[in-house]
Design a protein around this nucleic acid. Structure first.
Lengths: 252, 252
DNA sequence: CGAACGCCGTTACGCGTTTCACAAGTTACC
DNA sequence: GGTAACTTGTGAAACGCGTAACGGCGTTCG
C-alpha cells in the first residue's frame, strides 16, 4: 500500500452467511438502511390513506427501485409478508421502525447553525420523536443562546463539553469548509459515532465513526456533466428512475 | 419483471477497452464523476498554496479514497502524470475541468426558493462561472420577482416557459414533497436533463433524465442507525474515512 | 555508470450488490 | 374440489466497482 492511512472499509469482519438480526448486530448494509428509511416514510404515508396491504412491486414503484430489491431488503431485516396478500403495512412499518429507531431516543448535535444548518433543522423539526436535534453549535455570537425550532444554540467552545455531557453520538456538520476538520476532531474527541457531513471537504475521522458526506457541489457538478451526455442515467448507483405513471397501483 | 419500468442501467455499452474521451462520450461512471468533482476542488485549493505537483496517494488522502482509486479515475479520463513526479496540478486540473465543465456555460434552475433552496443558492453563488443558477421558481408571492444572490425568482406558473426559453437543462428541486412530482413533471416537459432532488420523495421521471436524490432524512436516519452499532463504517459505499493526520504530506 | 527506489498505468481479481429465475404457498374462481 | 393466477422467499448468476498486484520508467544515490 501507500505510505500511511488505512482508508475506511470495514475492518476484518467475516460478514459471512446469515446477515439477519442475531446477536444484536443485524449487519445491514449502508444502502439497505437508506432504502429502509425511505420505505418507512412511504409506508407511513400509505397508512394515512388507509392502505393495509401492499405488494413488493407497488412499494418498489413508489421507492423507485426494483421489486426484487424490496423483497431482498425485507429479507435482510427478517420481515416476511404473506403470499398473495403482500406486506401488511402496519407490521412491516413496525419491523422497520424497530430496526431504524432502536429502543431509546437518540440526540443529535447540529454543528453550524447557518443557513444550511437551519434548513436541516427545520426539515426535521419534531419529525421523529426518537431522533431529536438536541443542541446547536455556532461561532456567531448573534445566534448563540437563541433557541431555533426548539433547539438551543451553544457556543462552539462548549461543543466538547455539551456533547459529552448529553451523550450525543450523532452530529450534523454544516460549517464552512475551513473549520470542518477542526469541528469534526472536536466531535470525535467528545465521543461522536456518526456524522452527516454537508461540508465541501472530506473529513478525516477514525474508522469507527460513520460518515455520510452529502456533497452538494459534487451533486450539482455531476448533474451538469450528465446533462451534457445524451443518454441520461449513466452507469449505476441508487436508482430513482422509472418513467410514466400509466396504470400502476390498483391499491387494493 | 414487474409491470412497467426499466430501471436505469447503461444500455448495452461494451465499456470494453479504452473508455477515454473519444467520440465525445467519455462513458464515465456516476461515482467517478463525483470524485472528479472532489479532486477538482482539492486541486484548486492546492494550487492556491503554490503546490505544483502531487502524488496519487497524497491526493487520495485528501479525498479520503485509495491511491489506486485516484490513478484509476485519472486513467478513465485519460490524464497521465509523470512517473516519480506525480501529477502536475495545473494540467490535471485543466483535464478535469474540460471534462466536467464542458465548452459552454450551463444554466441551472432552482425550483423552490425556500430555506433550503436559498442555502443551496448561497452555496453556489458565483462559484463556478460555467455553472450558473440562472432562474428561481416559487409559489410564494413574497419572493416572486425578487433577486436573490443574483438569481431572479419567477412564478412557478412560468416554469415551463422560462426553462424552455432559456434552454435550461439542469434543475435543483427544493420544494415540499407534495408538489415535488408535479414540479418534476413540468421540468421534464420543458426539456430538463438532470435533476438534483432534495425532496423527501423519489421522483418518477423518464430514464433519460439523470436524477441525484439527496435524501437528507435517510442520511440522518442511517447515521442514527449506525451510531448504535459499535463498529462504525459498515459495509461499503463512498468512503470518507481514514484516521489521524500524523506525518502525511511532505508537500514537495 | 549502474543499481535501487518510487511512482504511474494497467490488468486481474475479489467483493458487495442487484437482478434473474424458480419453488412453494395462498387465494379466488369456476 | 380442483385449478389457475397471483404472490413471496431465496439460491445463483450478473454486474459494477474497488483493490491488489505487476511491468515500466524516470530519478537518484552509491
Amino acid at each position: 500500500m501507500d505510505g500511511d492511512i488505512a482508508l475506511s472499509k470495514v475492518p476484518g469482519k467475516g460478514w459471512a452467511d446469515r446477515a439477519v438480526a442475531q446477536a444484536g448486530k443485524p449487519v445491514v448494509s449502508r444502502k439497505t438502511v437508506g432504502r429502509l428509511s425511505l420505505y418507512r416514510r412511504l409506508l407511513d404515508n400509505l397508512r394515512g390513506t388507509g392502505t393495509t396491504h401492499i405488494y413488493s412491486h407497488q412499494l418498489a414503484h413508489l421507492a423507485g427501485v426494483s421489486a426484487a430489491q424490496v423483497r431482498r431488503d425485507f429479507m435482510v431485516i427478517g420481515y416476511s409478508g404473506s403470499p398473495n396478500r403482500g406486506y401488511h403495512v402496519d407490521t412491516c412499518l413496525a419491523s422497520i421502525e424497530s430496526l431504524l429507531d432502536g429502543a431509546t431516543r437518540q440526540d443529535v448535535a447540529l454543528v453550524g447553525v447557518g443557513r444550511l444548518g437551519r434548513s436541516v433543522l427545520a426539515h426535521f423539526a419534531g419529525r421523529r420523536p426518537l431522533l431529536r436535534i438536541a443542541a446547536g453549535f455556532d461561532t456567531n455570537p448573534g445566534v448563540i443562546g437563541t433557541t431555533i425550532e426548539g433547539c438551543l444554540v451553544h457556543s462552539m467552545d462548549d461543543l466538547e463539553r455539551v456533547v459529552a455531557e448529553k451523550g450525543i453520538r450523532i452530529a450534523i456538520l454544516a460549517v464552512p469548509p475551513e473549520t470542518a476538520q477542526a469541528a469534526a476532531d472536536a466531535l470525535v474527541r467528545s465521543g461522536i459515532r456518526s456524522l452527516v457531513d454537508f461540508t465541501a471537504v472530506p473529513l478525516h475521522v477514525p474508522d469507527e465513526v460513520f460518515v455520510d458526506h452529502m456533497d452538494i457541489t459534487s451533486a450539482l457538478e455531476s448533474a451538469a456533466f450528465f446533462a451534457r451526455q445524451d443518454q441520461g442515467t449513466p452507469p449505476m448507483d441508487n436508482g430513482v428512475d422509472n418513467g410514466s405513471e400509466a396504470d400502476m397501483f390498483p391499491m387494493i
